[in-house]
Design a protein around this nucleic acid. Structure first.
Lengths: 367, 367
DNA sequence: CTGTTAGCGCATTCAG
DNA sequence: CTGAATGCGCTAACAG
């Protein structure tokens, strides 16, 4: 634990013992199916059937039993149920490894929302793993899988030769990837955008505005998203017969620092581009910041387009023209696919494509 | 579910059946403690003791058993264990109700990180609840508590007369609040900053820079954070003998739209303030955006200070002078306190104060 | 130091 | 349509 002690001991408040709480405590000692059975004059198995809403039970007895349940405040014990059902109705969500930097990107909260939505509707629960190191993550996934903690796993990342992916694959454990798997593409259900197409479209938009020198600024070139978007960018340039310089391709960190370096490099170029295709809104934010710091204006001096359409892209100055990749949908669909898969192990692997949408705002001008 | 159908059926890939997978599947049928017992020639209870690293077992047999476990690929079943242990070593984390807007604020990912860190170290797991409505949240908490899903709950919000809080209190279920409880303050363990002091300090900083007309822009006035920070601001003004106008107190939404309204109002004032105390970095972002849109510069025309020190406050132009409330710490300490509480129900309620720290950047100038 | 027994709370045969 | 019996995988007395 990296916790630097900081508890003000003098702020400790001792709460008064409350008598009636003691009673509640005693009463609360878990009311089981047996208690309900006794109270309603039936057998435990009947109660169990009522819980499952088994049609072979009379409406009358059902009513009777339900009343008893309510009266006693009965609630089925999940562990017991899981034990016999061999299913936890829980799914594990795995964040990319340095979770600290990952969670910074509004992308993730948004996928989580999507996932969460269907999880809740299906009455599942969600176990979040946000290990700091790759090793930690691996451990957590192991615990989840081996311990039968969860019925399935959603991977919010995709890495080359990833231990976790391989582990899941080897154990034939249900999982889906948000994004594009690096390998075994036909065996792994994944939910993705057509990033190539999106990259091409947004680049074409810039070209349509008259830009001829267009640079690409992306995150790690090891990420498929980056690669795909960049490929789309390349194709667009090529089809338009525009120059496609290596010098116009920059790869940087997802976070702030990246923006700075990228901009410095850009400005150092003898012939500067006029258009910028940036692979992530968060990077754009950094770029924007550094650009104006150096006295340049967007879109007057540089036109900029980017990807994701996180809420931030609306608040920036200028507001970003970006491709909306429907993050929420990515999450929702992946949860849906995973749940299907856990309920029917023979579900074939699918690729689910979420259509994107261009969002035009103020970061682009004619050249 | 608000999912608008969008699966490209034509993109479905059918994966080839693999023969060897079938085998793995069969082998995998859960190796239990009994299997290990048999394989190592001891009784199940001995195996159980080895798992618990019971000192009353010979190192020799331990070794023997462990070897068998490894060989068979044994892993304890969590549900079974939970059932008898009456503990799940899981804790539930509850987001504020419209989780969609809440998760937008980088504050939450950061608390999650803090929580996650100690959760992982203590080998607990974390169940995240992000209901969209208050009702949904209530349901999820009910399931968690009644179903013995989790051993304790962390509330990432605090509302007046909150059903969830009351429910937890009535059931005497272990929970902690990040922030300040609205009621039963002495009975509820909570982790908070001294927001009053922080508000006062940051306002004094502005005063020290020569500002005399200082406005306060806060989130919902129903939130304790807002109230406390505002109280600090008031006190600072008062002690400095400065005017304290109601017209200089604005309450707005946490998100972008808020910024706009607040700024419009501000600019409509006959005597405008020169200093702005903003209760949240995210609001500051909106303010900044609208201010410059209207042709004003920060810090030249307005000096601005705010709270939280989320990563964004470093990327904005200008970078924000803000009070770092140690979000990560808030999360970590709350998890720590909760775990202690679940392990010892008699732990008295505590108030844990996390010290804040001022971070000076570029959004303030002398007047 | 280790084995035997019992039971956690529930679902599910199999009888009736 | 309902009850009795059995077992899920594990831990915890209680014996040896």
């Amino acid at each position: 634990m990296k916790i630097v002690g900081s508890i003000c001991q003098n702020n400790v408040i001792i709460s008064e013992e409350k008598q009636h709480k003691q009673e509640k405590q005693r009463v609360k000692t878990m009311v089981t199916i047996k208690d309900v059975a006794k109270a309603s004059g039936v057998s435990p198995s009947t109660v169990s059937r009522v819980i499952a809403d088994n049609p072979r039970i009379t409406e009358d007895t059902k009513k009777k039993v339900r009343k008893a349940m309510k009266k006693l405040g009965y609630h089925p014990n999940v562990s017991a149920r899981n034990l016999v059902a061999k299913s936890t109705k829980a799914i594990g969500v795995i964040m990319p490894s340095p979770a600290n930097t990952a969670l910074q990107n509004p992308f993730f909260p948004e996928v989580l929302r999507g996932i969460s939505s269907v999880i809740h509707d299906e009455r599942y629960s969600m176990s979040l793993s946000t290990g700091e190191t790759e090793e930690e993550i691996y451990q957590e996934v192991q615990r989840m899988v081996y311990g039968s903690y969860v019925d399935g796993v959603i991977l919010l990342y995709s890495r080359i030769n990833d231990r976790v992916t391989n582990f899941l694959l080897e154990n034939d454990f249900p999982f889906v990837i948000v994004g594009k798997p690096y390998d075994h593409e036909t065996e792994i259900t994944h939910v993705d955008n057509d990033n190539f197409k999106a990259g091409k479209e947004i680049t074409n938009y810039l070209i349509g505005k008259g830009h001829e020198r267009i640079a690409f600024i992306g995150g790690s070139s090891e990420l498929f998203v980056t690669m795909d978007r960049e490929a789309g960018y390349n194709t667009a340039l090529q089809e338009a017969g525009l120059i496609n310089l290596d010098a116009y391709k920059i790869h940087t960190e997802f976070l702030k620092s990246g923006g700075r370096e990228a901009v410095e490099y850009l400005l150092s170029l003898e012939t500067r581009p006029t258009g910028l295709v940036v692979s992530d809104d968060l990077i754009s934010l950094g770029i924007l910041s550094r650009l104006e710091e150096s006295g340049f204006r967007v879109p007057q001096d540089f036109s900029l387009v980017s990807f994701n359409n996180v809420y931030l892209s609306e608040i920036t100055r200028p507001a970003l023209t970006t491709v909306d990749v429907k993050i929420y949908e990515l999450g929702a669909q992946s949860a849906k696919a995973l749940i299907e898969k856990t309920q029917n192990k023979d579900e074939p692997a699918k690729r689910i494509m979420i259509p994107h949408k261009m969002v035009y705002r103020d970061s682009v001008s004619e050249v």
